[in-house]
Structures are given as structure tokens and as C-alpha cells.
């Protein structure tokens, strides 16, 4: 169950597992500590998702060259 914490933080667990992990999290201090550690990793990955088109008025340079 503990290794679900990464998938939980990323929001990619399937619904039933997501709910099961939420219940597990209530009682597992190890996973609570890992949740805090990993909580901002997805934000770093978001920088990859958004980098090529940060905003509509700011086209990526690789496209305009």
C-alpha cells in the first residue's frame, strides 16, 4: 500500500485505489511524511507540460525560428 503514495500525489490512481489510499493515509504516518516530501514534485513536472506554450502571446522560440 505504501508505494501508492507517489501515484496518489500525482493524482493517477484509479478511483477505487485512490479512495483506498485516502483511508490508508489517515492512519499511516510514513505515507503522511512522504506526501509532504513529494507534494511539489508534480509542480516541477507541470513545468514540462507547460513550457512549450507558456501562454498564447508568448510562442515558443523553437516554433518561431
Amino acid at each position: 500500500m505504501h508505494d501508492g503514495v507517489a501515484a496518489y500525489v500525482l493524482g493517477v490512481l484509479d478511483d477505487s485505489e485512490h479512495e483506498a489510499f485516502e483511508r490508508h493515509l489517515e492512519v499511516c504516518e510514513q505515507c503522511q511524511a512522504e506526501l509532504v516530501e513529494l507534494a511539489e514534485v508534480p509542480d516541477r513536472l507541470d513545468e514540462l507540460k507547460q513550457a512549450p506554450s507558456a501562454s498564447e502571446d508568448d510562442p515558443p522560440m523553437s516554433m518561431s525560428r
Partner: peptide, 11 residues
Amino acid sequence: KSRLYYGIRAL
């Protein structure tokens, strides 16, 4: 799920 755990920790 398991690879994701170790991958995210490594990242």
C-alpha cells in the same frame, strides 16, 4: 505503481 514510486523518489 511501484516503478512510479521509485521513479518519483529518484526524480
